[in-house]
Design a protein around this nucleic acid. Sequence first.
RNA 1: GCGCCGGUAGCUCAGCUGGAUAGAGCACCAGACUUCGAAUCUGGGGGUCAGGGGUUCGAAUCCCUUCCGGCGCGCCA
Length: 596
Amino acid sequence: MAPNDRPQNLFAVIHDRVLAALDALIAEGLLPAAIDRSRVLVEPPRDAAHGDMATNAAMVLAKDAGRKPRELAEALAGRLRADPLVAAADIAGPGFINLTLRPQAWTQALREAIEAGGDYGRARQGAGETVNIEYVSANPTGPMHVGHCRGAVFGDALANLLAFAGCDVTREYYINDAGAQVDVLARSAYLRYREALGEDIGAIPEGLYPGDYLKPVGAALAKEHGARLKAKPESEWLPLVRAKAIAMMMEAIRADLVALNVRHDVFFSERSLVEEGDAVGKTIAWLRERGEVYEGRLPPPKGAPVEDWEDREQTLFRATDFGDDVDRPLLKSDGSYTYFASDIAYHKSKFDRGFRNLIDVWGADHGGYIKRMQAAVKAVTGGKAALDVKIVQLVKLLRGGEPVKMSKRAGEFVTLREVVDEVGRDAVRFMMLFRKNDAVLDFDLARVIEQSRDNAVFYVQYGHARAHSIFRMAREQFPDLPPGNAARAALVASAPLEWLDDPAELALVRRIALYPRLIEAAAAAHEPHRIAFYLYELASEFHAQWTRGKDLPHLRFIIQNDRELTLARMALVQGVMTVLASGLAILGVSAPEEMR
RNA sequence: GCGCCGGUAGCUCAGCUGGAUAGAGCACCAGACUUCGAAUCUGGGGGUCAGGGGUUCGAAUCCCUUCCGGCGCGCCA
């Protein structure tokens, strides 16, 4: 294996060794040639007493081999003991093989982490995969509120994670600028326009957007057009006003996203699908040619009665051919496209642009929409693209345990910007990711700015700052220790790591060695929250080891008059720092060097 | 009525796509600062993994079912 091709994931290395050992057993005739390798796992055991890694190979393969698990385990363990990385291979329980690695295997992993620096954990699993991830996609009818925040942060972190895992990632925002809502926006803005011209518009009528945020749009329109629009019929002013309002809303939304450090590569206009070459109509025709569109009737929906239900023939997509529960309409009664119709065309566009892995991030209220969209993607890509829809649950905004009151009706809601301004970008981002995406999230404005262990953001960042602090202090003892990250890393990478022999130190080394495996698993599952929890655990172990040095001075990171031991421990600190910084970067959270 | 998501310690939540004796934090109790940052740490009690059945070497995890909560159920997006 070429040195620069060495996989950083030690678990993957051992996994390969186990598979090789199985091949050897096949050659000996102990195992049949046709075995299911996919179920063979190499994992960290829950209990450290069980060694460094465990494999279930013997249990999983026992049936195929026609042998008892423990008998097979005995043969396999015998093979593995010959491996230079393996110090011991014990059989336990129903047939686990517990592996203890030689200490050099772990210290070598630490060395690699330090040498790789910011590239440590970067994976190749996604090599060649093109991923399109669509997130936020808030309607351009107003500023972003806290509800949008979670999807924005989640999508952004997932995109970072996939890119780190080697995927070619495109971040996309779908602008819903075609439906009836943006016409309502235009009418609301027109009212503000008249207001800007000095007219008394009174109360905003029911059905229009009442928020003050449209006043600048009205003012801009007045400045641009003077009173000219007042004389025109709606059919003439509406497109003008609509375009202006959408442009200004998108500008505000982009600014909000920047405040959150969320950036997209592509802003895709729904309207462009209709106006530029009628992509929606073409997609429907395309599906019709393939027999997936027909004229028919739908049964009325069960449950909550629809007041104006009218049984009529309509244009339907055969979603049931692709796993949906019912066929779905493509045209409204007035002949215009349904949102679903343009969404099909939109997803076809993603496929046509070369993407084979599609990810959509939606709010929980769109959960019922997943099946039909996946059906549509199947139809429109011939099954050649996969769509994963990630649902982000709602955020309950609290302050000191009490719910923050919001009145959507009156146009009073807490905006994303207000929250970011109050608690900071890092706190918002980390807390939004410190929970599974499909679980409801309590976000307490008072708690996330506390500087204590309660506050995971702070706790993890403090771990990183503390690592830097240790280096600052170490330089006072050993002035030749270079200050820069790269130079320092070069020095500590050659440190005598065999001096790291305290169990807690070795546990930290193992935790660091786990990072590449974590990246792979989190990327495969599309679950960035795993990074946040891992960082919290790593920080926790690091803080604990630091404090242990108070009672047990020989365990301090800096040992006066023992340059070699100090260097070895600096390597450990450097490893912790490297991984904390890397993980925080994926989450889009800053890694401060000091927090005083 | 149907579909999706959830139900794990008093509270808030993890649990690495089926692994070994289910873990953190908060709260509660008892401790550690002349010391590399106490913005930290150590120890303790606390569980019918909502209930029941099944699949198998092995289930919080997969399947069935019941209960509870949230969301959704042409012509909104």
